[in-house]
Design a protein around this nucleic acid. Sequence first.
DNA 1: AACGAAGTCAACCGCTAATTT
DNA 2: GAAATTAGCGGTTGACTTCGT
Length: 201
Amino acid sequence: MAPKNEESSKRVMNRGAWTAEEDKKLSQYIKIHGPSRWKTLAIQSGLNRCGKSCRLRWLNYLRPNIKRGNISEAEEDLILRLHKLLGNRWALIAGRLPGRTDNEIKNYWNSHLSKKINQPENSRRQPLVLQQPPPPPQETAPPPKVREEEGKGNGNNFELNFDMNELIDFSAGGNFYELEWMNTFLDRPDDDTHGLKNAHN
DNA sequence: AACGAAGTCAACCGCTAATTT
DNA sequence: GAAATTAGCGGTTGACTTCGT
């Protein structure tokens, strides 16, 4: 199917950490042309990077309204709950956390939360009570994509027979974190009775 | 102070789905 | 309808930092 490493097969691409100059180039190009056609973008912007790399850099770091670090307790709790519900569907989980990226959620999970949940159930699990006001709804919050509702392919038939956006509506304000239904839903002892978790992994 | 182990996280890889030609 | 291209995802890697001895 798609050629592999199509860009890198011709010439040697930059790899590794991005420099401030590269960031600037990328940001400026996207400002003018928009974040699409990554392969073309990578060539025309003068960045000696593959399109994939440019896309990742933009989505994870340069995109406006990105929040970095300092994941709040409320966010952490939401991640835990969503992970319980969705499994390693990082993009879906990140989609419910404005300003957070799938990569960041995934890293945070692997380095912090996966250990936490492996610890014996102690004081960690608390009722979902807001310590701080929810982050403002983001205008840039991506609309749900059909693909997200259907789940990723990879040969499985993962299906979410509900609209995540309706269930967790960030634009509604107010009851943002009052996911009582989810408390009930997730606090059931059997983690995977719904057939949703780890459908992919 | 020096060194190795463990932890963190940015970036890459391989893959599939969606879209375009 | 088929092939090619593009977009996006989750898993993994490796460089760097922090911690413990």
